[in-house]
Amino acid sequence: MSNNIETAKFRPEICTDENLVYRKPSTLLPEPFHYCPGCGHSTVHKIFMEVVEEMGIENEIIGVAPVGCSVFAYHYMGVDMQQAAHGRACAVATGIKRVQPDKYVFSYQGDGDLAAIGTGETIHAANRGENILVIFINNGIYGMTSGQMAPTTLEGMVSTTSPHGRDVKTQGYPLKMSEFIAPLPGVAYVTRQSVHKPANVRKAKKALRQALEYQKQGLGFCLVEIVTNCPSNWRMTPAQANQYIEEKMLAFYKLGDIKVPEVK
């Protein structure tokens, strides 16, 4: 933002619409992200707010940010937001949507929130076919509490509570929530995306837009899972973390649509 202002001050002649190649969406607040360098949250926040801007629905959307690194999403997303208790985003979103069925409602949840403590709320909101969008950020680790094992941590993956690598015999198996809920009749759309490469960012953005279009049509529960990283708690550089996504995470969490609405 400040760079744009500086440029505009000294080179006003080049600040024209036809020269514009990149700008922050108006729906993203002018706050610096607190997320770690290389973290996928910032990218997902940005593309989702671009979708909201492009659809022109910033006055008709309410979001829910439950506990996790992205509990602060309301500092960045310039729309009406509610912070929720850990795991309860789908219940809170249900409350919002049921009293305001004409508004768009989304939740933005991490893997611990959605797939561990909030599994019940997630499954039942999906099963009721709540007409909401759930953005599910899967990085296989608890980020906010500094790197403990998540329900989605890969077999053998090291975390502070699986320091010898996740032992599936005693610590359970990584949970594929998207595949788990897709068969439920109330679920309209489930897709798994990533934001570790520009091409994937574009696809993820398209999926988010698609999900909101489905919500507009009243088709039911939509889940967009985004496989992403946690360089700080994976103890990797951002580049290494994105390499790990490519080689390990995506080998287990396959990208692509898992369920799409039937064309009538």
Binding site: R88, V99, E121
Partner: peptide, 22 residues
């Protein structure tokens, strides 16, 4: 009015949170 049987009291009170905040 909306009448909804929640899946638990935990979910019910959080639905209350969401709707009350509207």
């Amino acid at each position: 009015m909306v009448v909804l049987q929640a899946e638990s009291e935990v979910a019910a009170i959080n639905m209350i949170y969401g709707a009350a905040a509207c």
